[in-house]
C-alpha cells in the first residue's frame, strides 16, 4: 500500500486554477521528487497534501485512510513532517527550543500536568531535550544549540528546519526546496544526508527540488508539474530527457507541443495591438475537453493515463515556455483565426 496517494487534486484561487487533476503516489521508503518551473503549483500541492489548503476536489489518502479534510496539526501528529520554502521555524527561539517545539505532538503529557509540573513532565522534558540534542548532533549543528534561530545563515536554517521536521517524528517527510540557499557542495552533502536519513529513520519522502543533480541522485520517481497539471512522471533519468520537461524548464520546444503553442513575439505584439490577446490566452475552456481519462484499472495505470492526458492537455492548452527557442514557426489554425 502506498504511503501517500493523491487523486484528482484540484484547487482554484479566484480565477487561477492552481492545480488540476493532480495524481501522485508515494510508496513506502521511496524518495519522490516533485519538480516544475516557478509557479507550477508544487508548493500549493504540498499545502493541499499537508492540510493547509482545502482542495476543491480530489482526495489525499495516507496509508489507505482518506485524510483530505484533516487539519495540518492533525496531519503533523499523524506523521506528515514538512518544511517550508522560506524556512518555517520560530525565529526568536533557540535551536534547541525549536527542536523541542517541533516535538509538541509527541510530548507525552497534557497541558495541565505541564502547568502543575509532575515528575512525568520533567522526565518527558528531559527526553525531549535529549532527542533534540541527538538531532543537533546528527546534523552537526550542536554549535548553534543555544543561539537564536533568527540570526543564522540561510543554509544553516534550511538544515535546522530539516531537523525540526525530523523532530516531529514523521512517517513521510515533505521537503520544500531543501537545498535553496545552499552551494553545490552543500547540496551534494544534503543528498547524502537524505539517503542516510531514509535508511536510519525508515522515512518516505516527497521532495520539491530544483537542483537537478540531487534529484537524479536521490529520487526514485519524479513528477513534473507545469501550470498546475502533471506534465510527466517517471524515473529521474527518463524525466531528464523527456522533451516536454526540457521544454517547460529550458524554454526549448517540445516537438509535439510546437504545433499548437508556438507563438512568436511578433504574434504577441500583434495580438496586443489588435486587442484579441484574451481570446486564446485567458480562456481556460480551450483545455482539451475531449481528452477523457481512461477508466482506472490499478493505480499505476491510472497514474500513467492521467499524466498522459494532463501532458497532452497542457500541451494543447498553453505550454508557453519562458524563453523561446530559435524560431521555426508552423502556423496553426487557431492562430490563423486570430491573426
Amino acid at each position: 500500500m502506498s504511503v501517500l496517494e493523491v487523486r484528482d487534486l484540484a484547487i482554484r484561487f479566484g480565477g487561477l486554477q492552481a492545480l488540476q487533476g493532480l495524481n501522485l503516489e508515494v510508496n513506502e521508503y521511496e524518495i519522490v521528487g516533485l519538480i516544475g518551473p516557478n509557479g507550477a503549483g508544487k508548493t500549493t500541492a504540498f499545502n493541499c497534501i499537508t492540510g493547509f489548503y482545502q482542495p476543491n476536489t480530489g482526495s489525499v489518502s495516507y496509508r489507505g485512510r482518506d485524510v483530505t479534510k484533516a487539519p495540518p496539526h492533525v496531519k503533523a501528529a499523524m506523521g506528515f513532517g514538512r518544511t517550508f520554502q522560506n524556512v518555517g521555524m520560530v525565529k526568536s527561539a533557540t535551536a534547541i527550543d525549536n527542536l523541542k517545539t517541533a516535538q509538541h505532538a509527541k510530548a507525552g503529557y497534557d497541558v495541565l500536568s505541564g502547568l502543575v509540573g509532575t515528575s512525568l513532565t520533567s522526565r518527558r522534558e528531559r527526553e525531549l531535550t535529549a532527542k533534540a540534542d541527538a538531532i543537533l548532533d546528527l546534523l552537526g549543528l550542536q554549535h548553534i544549540r543555544d543561539k537564536r534561530v533568527g540570526g543564522q545563515s540561510y543554509g544553516t536554517l534550511k538544515l535546522l528546519e530539516l531537523g525540526c521536521a525530523l523532530a516531529t517524528d514523521p512517517d513521510i517527510l515533505l521537503l520544500d526546496e531543501p537545498t535553496s540557499g545552499m552551494g553545490p557542495d552543500e547540496s551534494d552533502e544534503l543528498g547524502d544526508r537524505l539517503l542516510t536519513l531514509r535508511r536510519e529513520f525508515a522515512l518516505t519522502m516527497l521532495v520539491i527540488e530544483h537542483h537537478v543533480p540531487l534529484v537524479l541522485r536521490v529520487c526514485d520517481h519524479v513528477y513534473v508539474l507545469n501550470f498546475g497539471r502533471l506534465l510527466a512522471e517517471g524515473k529521474p533519468s527518463v524525466i531528464q530527457t523527456h522533451p516536454e520537461v526540457v521544454a517547460a524548464y529550458l524554454g526549448g520546444e517540445a516537438p509535439e507541443a510546437l504545433e499548437q503553442t508556438q507563438e512568436t513575439e511578433e504574434d504577441a505584439e500583434l495580438d496586443r495591438l489588435t486587442g484579441q490577446a484574451a481570446q486564446h490566452h485567458d480562456n481556460p475552456s480551450i483545455a482539451a475537453p475531449e481528452l477523457v481519462e481512461p477508466e482506472p484499472s490499478g493505480p499505476a495505470r491510472r497514474r500513467r493515463a492521467a499524466a498522459a492526458s494532463a501532458a497532452a492537455g497542457s500541451a494543447e492548452e498553453r505550454l508557453r515556455p519562458k524563453k523561446r527557442a530559435p524560431r521555426k514557426r508552423p502556423a496553426t489554425t487557431e492562430e490563423d483565426e486570430s491573426a
Partner: peptide, 16 residues
C-alpha cells in the same frame, strides 16, 4: 510562542 510568531509553522509542528 510558535503560534505567536507563525501559525503555519506552529501547525506544521503539530500544534493545535
Amino acid at each position: 510562542l510558535a503560534l505567536k510568531e507563525n501559525e503555519r509553522v506552529a501547525e506544521a509542528f503539530g500544534i493545535n
